[in-house]
Computed example of a mutant assay.
Amino acid sequence: MNRIVIVGASAAGLAAAETLRREGYDGTLILVGDEPRVPYDRPPLSKQVLSAEWEPDRATLRAPAELDALELELRLGVAAVGLDAVDRTVRLADGSALSYDGLIVATGVRPRRLPGEGAHVLRTLGDALTLRERLAPGRRLVVVGAGFLGAEAASVARRLGARVTLLEPAPVPLAHAVGEEVGRVLSRAHLERGVDLRTGVTVTEVTEDGVRLADGEEIEADEVLVAIGSLPNVEWLAGSGLTVGDGVVCDEYCEAARGVYAAGDFARWYNPLFGVSMRIEHRTNAAEQGMAAARNLLNPGARKAFAPVPYFWSDQYGMKIQAYGYLRGHEEVRFVEGESAEGRFVAAYRRGERLSGVLGVGVGPKVMRGWRQAVAAGATWGEAVG
């Protein structure tokens, strides 16, 4: 294999490149990215970068010397627009084409938007810097969507003295992800910090003065942040022969087609540890999947299934939230350690007869590691919680 192309200068793409070199690949390695910047970390955008605790360069994933050592051919600021998996060619927006012997695709996701102009989203470094310039004491910020991204941004904005209104269509924020009981606990943090949290409301459009709700009410704001989820960037794969839908579909080895592997937020793969197909939009998974895809591409005769215990974290109002496992589709939630009323607890999640995941707030890594091991071992619900 003399020429490998990685499409996506992301955490997943960078992890794949580093793994290829670490595993001994010494051929041509091309990294394509639609942003002009070298790979940077996205989780700090809604936390340290938005709050101005970090300057932009601190979010960069690798120093120049470290990137140089990888001997990459960088094609930054140009998007991939097409793939011919038969001829093994990637077409770029500048009219050029890249042939490959092996391909790893990691083009991530993009924010969902609402009708109307002028709203912020929070996906790129530029997005974070633009919004942080507008946040100041007394400024009115409307955040549409009380998921983890919206909650983190609301937390930072309140700390900076902005007046925050948080709008969420569901009766309980994050209930789809972590369950109603935990969702209510996390919601209390907003209310206790003076956020105007409104649930069960639908925003139909962004206006010049704020947002308009489905019932016609208008909420005025100086700034609007739309944080209503994301869409996988799969459009460029149309006609490629790859199966796409809610992400690009892969097998348990992260292979999407012969010689084509996928990683990161837009990869939907079969995770044999849980027996389901999943697409995970979390930083740790992106890096781990990039590494797994690279190893399997490089060593087709010794492939290993990618069967991780997914992990995510969030920082809100000084609370450290951590979760292991696959929480979606759970059938039961039980508080197994601590007290939810005190904001320090561990909640366990059941799917079928097994422990499918755990979420901790304000607990140490040692406690969470023990629960992670139980999830990884496939512990039954009875074994885990009694």
Score class of each variant (00 low, 15 high):
348 A>W: 10
344 R>K: 14
298 L>C: 13
346 V>T: 04
80 A>W: 06
94 D>L: 13
289 Q>W: 04
263 A>L: 07
219 I>H: 09
133 E>D: 14
23 E>C: 12
319 M>R: 15
18 E>L: 04
12 A>D: 02
158 R>N: 10
318 G>F: 12
381 W>P: 10
341 A>M: 00
335 F>G: 00
178 V>P: 00
375 V>R: 03
306 F>W: 01
338 G>F: 02
171 P>R: 15
252 E>I: 06
265 D>H: 07
237 L>D: 00
316 Q>D: 06
105 V>C: 03
285 N>C: 08
29 L>Y: 06
370 G>H: 11
127 D>T: 05
76 L>G: 12
80 A>M: 11
79 A>C: 11
131 L>E: 02
275 G>S: 03
333 V>S: 04
58 R>D: 08
379 A>P: 12
252 E>P: 08
106 A>D: 03
18 E>K: 12
11 A>K: 11
117 E>C: 06
350 R>S: 08
95 G>E: 13
57 D>Y: 07
184 R>V: 00
289 Q>R: 04
3 R>A: 09
193 R>S: 10
140 R>C: 11
79 A>V: 03
195 V>H: 07
182 V>G: 01
204 T>G: 08
309 V>S: 05
350 R>Y: 07
288 E>P: 01
156 V>H: 09
131 L>Y: 05
226 V>S: 13
80 A>I: 08
115 P>K: 05
372 R>K: 13
40 Y>P: 11
59 A>T: 15
281 E>K: 09
9 A>T: 08
260 V>N: 01
136 A>Y: 12
79 A>R: 14
153 A>I: 12
373 Q>F: 09
158 R>I: 14
97 A>N: 09
215 D>M: 12
120 H>K: 10
91 R>Y: 09
71 E>G: 10
50 L>S: 10
173 P>F: 00
334 R>L: 13
72 L>W: 04
234 V>N: 01
59 A>G: 14
146 A>N: 00
227 A>T: 04
310 P>S: 12
144 V>C: 04
254 C>I: 02
186 L>S: 00
198 R>Y: 04
141 L>M: 12
82 G>P: 08
103 L>N: 02
195 V>S: 06
56 P>F: 04
330 H>V: 07
99 S>V: 05
204 T>D: 13
254 C>D: 05
297 L>G: 03
7 V>M: 07
85 A>C: 10
283 R>P: 02
221 A>W: 06
110 R>P: 02
171 P>N: 08
81 V>H: 06
337 E>H: 12
105 V>M: 03
145 G>N: 04
185 V>S: 01
10 S>N: 12
51 S>I: 13
229 G>M: 10
75 R>F: 02
257 A>F: 01
9 A>Y: 10
233 N>I: 05
71 E>S: 14
133 E>H: 13
232 P>F: 14
114 L>F: 07
103 L>Y: 02
9 A>D: 14
287 A>G: 10
63 A>E: 15
321 I>R: 00
87 D>W: 05
218 E>Q: 15
116 G>C: 11
176 H>S: 13
235 E>L: 09
333 V>K: 01
233 N>T: 09
111 P>L: 09
166 L>R: 00
265 D>S: 06
329 G>K: 05
306 F>P: 02
60 T>P: 01
364 G>W: 10
265 D>T: 02
93 A>S: 15
11 A>T: 11
78 V>N: 09
310 P>C: 11
207 T>P: 01
261 Y>D: 00
146 A>G: 03
